[in-house]
């Protein structure tokens, strides 16, 4: 009983962190699902968002303005990856890795050291683990706002052309869509959202750390996949689909807390996350392979 009660006690924290990572996962969704690009920039841009927000807040900038600037700086990171990929013709994955490495240095320079404390008692942060209930409410509102803005944007002429770019680039060009620019734009929006989630995470934890984004892409992908697998049936509409991704982030963090709670070595968590993503991405592929193999055999039997 005590076990269950104390487990439930960790739930609000898991939900709050899950909401932050859910916003990050929405950013990943834009590149991974809409643009069909696996963008590794996010491991760096998340920390950039955290570092910019922390340093500005410490230097007396309004917290909302600090978050806005963090988002814009994240968009610049996306712009860089986009230019590497489109103007210089570097494969998307490598472009992301290059920017990620650049950001490692940039993030250290922004903070001046490997980590920076942002204690909630000293600064006017809007989310903090000291007030989980209030933080959850704030994070739900921010998530809803992000989903609302994205729903509107992807319904506009430019947004629709961006969806078409990811879906069928050749057709898009034939319909007069500048696919190169759209890829850059998508990467910018995605990394802006990821940086925003970094800015929220640093407030929640009261800390910005150079390592806090390591493996972020995998957590983001895991959230996208979990959200799709668990709630996909209810998510036909685009806004609902984004909400599913956010829910995926929450589920991820609840499972994470559970695993921590039952005493598993936390050093293994990143490995487990990666394995979960590999399994979820691999199973449909193997299934398809198995099915076509079966069909072949059936055909042979009939012959």
């Amino acid at each position: 009983m005590d076990f269950i009660l104390s487990l439930l006690g960790t739930l609000p924290g898991a939900v709050a962190q899950g909401l932050v990572w859910g916003i990050m996962a929405i950013g990943v969704y834009i590149t991974y699902k809409i643009l069909d690009i696996a963008d590794l920039t996010v491991d760096g841009s998340m920390v950039t968002g955290a570092a910019v927000c922390a340093m500005l807040t410490i230097n007396g900038v309004n917290i909302w303005l600090a978050m806005l600037i963090a988002t814009l700086v994240g968009m610049i990171a996306g712009l860089l990856t986009g230019v590497f990929h489109t103007a210089l013709g570097i494969p998307a994955i490598l472009s992301g890795i290059l920017t990620q490495l650049i950001l490692w240095s940039v993030n250290l320079k922004i903070m001046g050291k490997a980590n920076q404390a942002l204690p909630a008692r000293d600064y006017p942060v809007i989310v903090t683990q000291l007030e989980k209930g209030k933080s959850i409410l704030m994070l739900v509102l921010i998530t809803a706002a992000v989903i609302g803005v994205l729903y509107w944007f992807f319904g506009t002429e430019i947004g629709a052309s961006l969806r078409a770019t990811g879906n069928n680039p050749g057709m898009s060009r034939a319909q007069g869509i500048n696919t190169e620019w759209n890829k850059i734009l998508g990467l910018m929006i995605s990394n802006g959202i990821v940086a925003l989630s970094g800015a929220l995470l640093t407030q929640y934890l009261g800390l910005a750390d150079i390592n806090m984004g390591r493996g972020a892409i995998v957590i983001g992908l895991a959230s996208v996949i979990i959200g799709g697998a668990l709630f996909g049936k209810f998510c036909r509409n685009f806004a609902y689909r984004l909400a599913c991704v956010a829910l995926g982030g929450i589920v991820y963090y609840i499972v994470y807390q559970l695993v921590v709670f039952i005493g598993l070595d936390t050093d293994l968590l990143k490995m487990l996350s990666a394995i979960v993503v590999a399994v979820f991405l691999g199973v449909p592929h193997l299934k398809a392979k198995l099915m076509s193999g079966k069909k072949k055999k059936e055909a042979e039997n009939h012959a």
Partner: peptide, 26 residues
């Protein structure tokens, strides 16, 4: 055609061929 987009959305994309795409509804 864009397979994951609706028939109407595909047509709307084509109707804007050669025009500047804006932030108006698609």
């Amino acid at each position: 055609t864009a397979a994951d987009m609706e028939i109407g959305e595909n047509l709307a994309l084509a109707a804007r061929r050669g025009r500047k795409r804006t932030l108006h509804w698609n």
